[in-house]
């Protein structure tokens, strides 16, 4: 029986799961849409992983992404880590000596500056989704262009047009304007890529010293047009790792392995059988004060696993039922 580490990245748009072996070779990966239902997405993904890798024994589990706590409680995670750390660890593993990580995902984007193999600085997009995958997706759909062909078409452009990229709504009207003027599609698509890169560099990358090697990861790294535009804007080569779309999950798996090794105990993984467990999420409004926090309660039929969402700690610090205590404690420690 082979041993493997499981990495789970549950984000706003996609849920990614990877299995890596002890030599950090990727055994299997899954990239599915979260569709606003993180628990179902996670269970569905894990069932697929299990069916394809029945002879593998899980040695550790790590979770990351915006639903990392939820996924951590459900799967029984050994390491619950934020996306910055997870992406940085994975990039360093794939491209030793990395100094800059550019990650553009479905609804967020980040930049991580590394020096001497350690994170030295980072930034995430704050308020605006212009320059992320969702917008590219939407525009490709509007142009009747499969997203997979978007990048290849951008590479054919001879004179990319200049598009206002600060705001996705205005970018769209500007693109329509350029179409009506009669510019060809390739030039418009390439112009859009350049606008998104400009927007990314001036919002997320502002004030950061971007040094090579630059690693480009996240779903948008699949887009050749974006790679080209980024490389042109930074005047350097861009490295896209082989498994660019699941780097967060790879990082989570690597971090989980370290956590288990350091702790010297067995994994907290609940086993694949939990995929058939029914989880119920209930939310209610706490009426103790005028904050009216929306408290979320995660339970199985038998027990309450965790509560969160309150500002004061009244609910999140309340003891939960027996067998789940350990998992929650673990989540808090690693988090």
């Amino acid at each position: 029986m082979a041993f493997a580490d499981l990495g789970i990245d549950v984000g706003s748009v996609s849920t990614n799961i990877v299995l890596i072996d002890k030599n950090n070779e990727l055994l299997d990966k899954i990239y599915i849409r979260t569709k606003g239902q993180p628990i179902q997405a996670l269970q569905q993904g894990l069932v697929e992983i299990y069916q394809r890798n029945r002879d593998v024994e899980i040695r550790s589990v790590g979770t990351t992404g915006s639903a990392r706590y939820l996924a951590g409680v459900i799967a029984g995670s050994d390491a619950v880590k934020n996306e910055i750390t997870a992406h940085a660890v994975a990039a360093l593993e794939e491209v030793p000596g990395t100094q800059t990580v550019i990650e553009i995902g479905g609804q967020d984007s980040k930049i991580i500056i590394l020096r001497d193999n350690t994170v030295a600085d980072f930034a995430m997009n704050t308020v605006c989704a212009a320059g992320t995958g969702s917008f590219l997706d939407q525009q490709a759909a509007r142009l009747n262009l499969p997203i997979e062909e978007f990048g290849a078409l951008a590479l054919k452009a001879k004179n990319p047009v200049r598009i206002a990229g600060r705001c996705s709504v205005f970018a769209e009207s500007d693109m329509i304007h350029k179409q009506q003027m009669g510019h060809n599609l390739a030039d418009i698509v390439a112009g859009l890529c350049e606008a998104l890169v400009r927007n990314y560099l001036s919002n997320v990358g502002k004030g950061k010293e971007i040094l090579a090697p630059v690693v480009f990861q996240g779903g948008v790294a699949a887009n050749k047009g974006m790679r080209e535009a980024l490389s042109k804007a930074l005047n350097t080569d861009i490295v896209v790792p082989k498994y660019f779309d699941v780097m967060g999950a790879i990082g989570a798996a690597l971090l989980a392995r370290d956590a288990v090794k350091q702790r010297g105990t067995r994994t907290n993984f609940r086993g694949f059988s939990f995929c058939s467990t029914e989880f119920n999420v209930k939310s209610f409004e706490c009426t103790s004060c005028a904050n009216r926090c929306e408290v979320v309660e995660l339970k199985t039929l038998a027990a309450v696993l965790a509560r969160w969402g309150d500002r004061c700690g009244k609910w999140s610090e309340m003891p939960v039922d027996g067998l789940c205590k350990q998992a929650q404690k673990q989540t808090q420690q690693t988090g």
Binding site: S66, E83, I84, M124
Partner: peptide, 25 residues
């Protein structure tokens, strides 16, 4: 008034993590 706590928490975690790991290294 638009700030959300989730985004802040992720940043704080990343910041604290960054310091821990660099001290560890």
């Amino acid at each position: 008034e638009q700030s959300g706590e989730a985004g802040l928490l992720t940043r704080l975690e990343a910041f604290v993590d960054m310091i821990y790991r660099s001290k560890q290294n």
